[in-house]
Design a protein around this nucleic acid. Structure first.
Length: 106
DNA sequence: TCCTTGACGGAGA
DNA sequence: ATCTCCGCCAAGG
Protein backbone atom coordinates (compact mmCIF):
# COMPACT_ATOMS: atom_id res chain seq x y z
CA UNK A 1 0.00 0.00 0.00
CA UNK A 2 2.71 2.43 1.00
CA UNK A 3 4.77 1.62 -2.07
CA UNK A 4 2.05 2.63 -4.46
CA UNK A 5 2.52 5.84 -6.38
CA UNK A 6 0.47 8.87 -5.31
CA UNK A 7 -1.70 8.41 -8.35
CA UNK A 8 -2.42 4.78 -7.51
CA UNK A 9 -3.31 5.62 -3.95
CA UNK A 10 -5.83 8.11 -5.19
CA UNK A 11 -7.35 5.51 -7.50
CA UNK A 12 -7.72 3.15 -4.56
CA UNK A 13 -9.48 5.68 -2.38
CA UNK A 14 -11.89 6.74 -5.12
CA UNK A 15 -12.65 3.12 -5.76
CA UNK A 16 -13.86 2.75 -2.16
CA UNK A 17 -16.51 5.46 -2.34
CA UNK A 18 -19.85 3.63 -2.16
CA UNK A 19 -22.73 4.28 -4.55
CA UNK A 20 -25.09 6.87 -3.13
CA UNK A 21 -22.31 8.87 -1.46
CA UNK A 22 -19.75 11.44 -2.55
CA UNK A 23 -16.33 12.50 -1.32
CA UNK A 24 -14.56 15.80 -1.83
CA UNK A 25 -11.23 16.20 -3.61
CA UNK A 26 -9.60 17.22 -0.36
CA UNK A 27 -11.12 14.27 1.47
CA UNK A 28 -9.74 11.86 -1.12
CA UNK A 29 -6.33 13.48 -0.85
CA UNK A 30 -6.31 13.14 2.94
CA UNK A 31 -7.45 9.51 2.83
CA UNK A 32 -4.74 8.77 0.29
CA UNK A 33 -2.16 10.15 2.69
CA UNK A 34 -1.59 13.26 0.56
CA UNK A 35 -2.76 16.18 2.71
CA UNK A 36 -3.28 19.55 1.00
CA UNK A 37 -3.20 18.03 -2.41
CA UNK A 38 -6.84 18.24 -3.47
CA UNK A 39 -5.73 19.83 -6.67
CA UNK A 40 -3.61 16.87 -7.51
CA UNK A 41 -6.64 14.60 -7.10
CA UNK A 42 -8.42 16.60 -9.78
CA UNK A 43 -5.44 16.29 -12.04
CA UNK A 44 -5.33 12.51 -11.58
CA UNK A 45 -9.04 12.11 -12.29
CA UNK A 46 -8.67 14.23 -15.40
CA UNK A 47 -6.15 11.78 -16.81
CA UNK A 48 -7.67 8.40 -16.05
CA UNK A 49 -6.66 5.72 -18.53
CA UNK A 50 -9.19 5.18 -21.33
CA UNK A 51 -11.70 2.52 -20.32
CA UNK A 52 -11.13 3.01 -16.60
CA UNK A 53 -14.10 1.97 -14.47
CA UNK A 54 -13.14 4.17 -11.54
CA UNK A 55 -16.19 6.04 -10.11
CA UNK A 56 -14.66 9.49 -10.66
CA UNK A 57 -18.13 11.05 -10.66
CA UNK A 58 -18.44 10.47 -6.90
CA UNK A 59 -15.84 13.17 -6.25
CA UNK A 60 -17.03 16.76 -5.86
CA UNK A 61 -15.63 20.04 -4.57
CA UNK A 62 -15.51 20.99 -0.90
CA UNK A 63 -18.45 23.32 -1.47
CA UNK A 64 -20.60 20.41 -2.61
CA UNK A 65 -20.58 21.56 -6.21
CA UNK A 66 -19.66 19.70 -9.37
CA UNK A 67 -16.35 21.08 -10.55
CA UNK A 68 -17.16 21.19 -14.27
CA UNK A 69 -18.63 24.31 -15.83
CA UNK A 70 -22.43 24.33 -15.68
CA UNK A 71 -23.82 23.31 -19.03
CA UNK A 72 -20.74 21.38 -20.12
CA UNK A 73 -21.07 17.77 -21.30
CA UNK A 74 -18.90 16.61 -18.42
CA UNK A 75 -21.11 18.40 -15.92
CA UNK A 76 -24.17 16.70 -17.42
CA UNK A 77 -22.50 13.29 -17.36
CA UNK A 78 -21.47 13.59 -13.75
CA UNK A 79 -24.92 14.78 -12.72
CA UNK A 80 -26.62 11.87 -14.50
CA UNK A 81 -24.33 9.27 -13.02
CA UNK A 82 -24.72 10.63 -9.49
CA UNK A 83 -28.47 10.67 -9.85
CA UNK A 84 -28.50 7.07 -10.98
CA UNK A 85 -26.53 6.38 -7.80
CA UNK A 86 -29.40 7.95 -5.88
CA UNK A 87 -27.61 11.19 -5.04
CA UNK A 88 -29.74 14.34 -5.28
CA UNK A 89 -28.10 16.93 -7.51
CA UNK A 90 -29.94 20.23 -7.80
CA UNK A 91 -28.42 23.10 -9.69
CA UNK A 92 -25.06 21.35 -9.75
CA UNK A 93 -25.09 21.10 -5.97
CA UNK A 94 -25.05 18.16 -3.59
CA UNK A 95 -25.84 18.47 0.11
CA UNK A 96 -22.70 17.17 1.77
CA UNK A 97 -24.41 16.96 5.15
CA UNK A 98 -26.56 14.26 3.62
CA UNK A 99 -24.40 12.57 1.02
CA UNK A 100 -20.79 12.90 2.14
CA UNK A 101 -19.08 9.53 2.50
CA UNK A 102 -17.94 8.78 6.01
CA UNK A 103 -15.20 6.13 5.67
CA UNK A 104 -15.44 5.25 9.36
CA UNK A 105 -19.09 4.27 9.13
CA UNK A 106 -20.76 1.66 7.01
C1' DT B 1 16.09 19.84 -16.77
C1' DC B 2 12.93 23.85 -16.49
C1' DC B 3 8.35 25.85 -17.05
C1' DT B 4 3.43 25.56 -17.20
C1' DT B 5 -0.84 23.66 -15.90
C1' DG B 6 -4.66 22.77 -13.14
C1' DA B 7 -11.87 18.05 -12.02
C1' DC B 8 -8.84 22.36 -5.28
C1' DG B 9 -9.45 24.72 -0.82
C1' DG B 10 -9.56 28.11 2.56
C1' DA B 11 -8.98 32.76 4.12
C1' DG B 12 -10.14 37.42 3.61
C1' DA B 13 -13.18 41.08 1.52
C1' DA C 1 -23.96 33.78 -0.33
C1' DT C 2 -19.94 35.09 -4.01
C1' DC C 3 -15.47 36.42 -5.56
C1' DT C 4 -10.49 36.94 -5.68
C1' DC C 5 -6.02 35.63 -4.37
C1' DC C 6 -2.57 32.38 -3.63
C1' DG C 7 -0.24 28.06 -1.65
C1' DC C 8 0.20 23.36 -3.02
C1' DC C 9 3.14 20.11 -6.25
C1' DA C 10 2.87 15.82 -9.57
C1' DA C 11 2.61 15.39 -14.41
C1' DG C 12 3.23 16.75 -19.11
C1' DG C 13 5.57 18.99 -22.68
Amino acid sequence: MSDLSPRERIWQVVNMIPAGRVATYGQVADLAGLPRRARFVGQVLARLPPGSRLPWFRVVSASGRISFPAGSPSHARQTARLQSDGVAVTGGRIDLETFRWDPSSR
